[in-house]
Design a protein around this nucleic acid. Sequence first.
DNA 1: GGCGGTATATTGGTCAGACCAATTTTCTCC
DNA 2: GGAGAAAATTGGTCTGACCAATATACCGCC
Lengths: 239, 239
Amino acid sequence: MSSQVDEVSTQLEQAIAAGRYTPARRLPAERALAVQFCVSRATVREAIGSLVARGLLQRRPGDGTYVLPESDRRMAEVWLDMVQRHPALQGDLIEFRAMLESRAAELAALRRDADDCLRLQAAHAAVDAAYAGSDRDEQIRSDVAFHRAIAAATHNPVFSYLTSSLLKVMHEHVQLSLAGLQPQSSTAQQLRVQHDALLAAIVDGDAVRARAAAGQHMDFVAVRLNALAQRPRRAAARR
Amino acid sequence: MSSQVDEVSTQLEQAIAAGRYTPARRLPAERALAVQFCVSRATVREAIGSLVARGLLQRRPGDGTYVLPESDRRMAEVWLDMVQRHPALQGDLIEFRAMLESRAAELAALRRDADDCLRLQAAHAAVDAAYAGSDRDEQIRSDVAFHRAIAAATHNPVFSYLTSSLLKVMHEHVQLSLAGLQPQSSTAQQLRVQHDALLAAIVDGDAVRARAAAGQHMDFVAVRLNALAQRPRRAAARR
DNA sequence: GGCGGTATATTGGTCAGACCAATTTTCTCC
DNA sequence: GGAGAAAATTGGTCTGACCAATATACCGCC
């Protein structure tokens, strides 16, 4: 904690947190920072490197170093790394997500306020609109936004945080799995029905129904993804 | 993603994951790695630096670079930051943990094999032994180990991973809350009973009972911690 | 004046070699 | 054999240099 690079990296982090360096505007050049902090460029490079590793900064050769906007920070680094290096974990992630979404739906039904309901209905309408069109990016974006709205309605930041992270990671990884989805297909219809039920249960404040609806939705998603991934089922006694 | 330091850092990470470098044994010196990878020492330093930032390695001046044992890796950085900066989130973390442990108990009951049962019983015995003594660090360690063993029995790495992270963070934060616990107090007795029930249900393969036991245990822990933290209850409609 | 392409300056990426301080290892002497 | 000093090793930092990618400024052309 007392090395020079820690010193520099801490100061940079605080400056970022304080908003002195904002996204889309670039940091002073490494050579300039070296002068400013009275250290060598190698030291400032290591400090920046650690912030890059933590997903706070981004380096662009020939251009400069930029602060990443909050939304792009890979907060889910943990899972991102796990999944990217071990695609076999995808099923395990789905299992985790099923638990998370079920509980989130339950809590959302118990705690949603009027604002939450408005946001949920708006997000739901956006999903419908997206699936009426053919922009797949928009479909994914709106779907993620809907599930994030549910998580937000729990009023538990941990749920919001993890849901955002998980969906970001999963959709990056399974983006293609939705690619072939036709708007009028039975799959799309089923998704719509499930979303409807989920929304209604939360707005009604019916925690039991909300949990059940989320569970069904997740089962459906799991089946679809497993069908694509074709990974072997886990046995009770393996090893 | 194609720079030389990424190349080196990826190779190092894979080597660590593959167990070619194990904890407590030090990595080759930076100068040696530079020769081995045919890059400069500065490059290898940056690669190592990023792994250090991610909590995989540890550098000791004058000594060497070491692989951190799994348990010491600060994987929970996300929550660690959240909790350290916003202690009010502790209740939210407990809520999350309750969900995680309930589901883990359920899955463990469904999937545990003979080895898992042995490990669970050993961990449970260790908890009893620790609470018979007065070493509080050991009590905490054994308690964490027990819950980790349950998570491991789910055979879902995501659960193991998150459980380890969460417990590490929470126990760092609430360590004092257990400090005054007397071995023969009613609290300690209740904890013991709850652990017994949890273990028995998992070994029996009774998922429903396991879930219920975990839920009761978490309720109990939440009450104890809330009593200490004295934080206001969340209202259904806030803001 | 506006526009397109080229030249220059700036920036991150990498390299080589050097010195320091902390630590380990080795050797020496009692 | 053991304690202490000397040497070797290691991470931490610095300097100064070159490359490739990018941005910026410039200039000639329309």
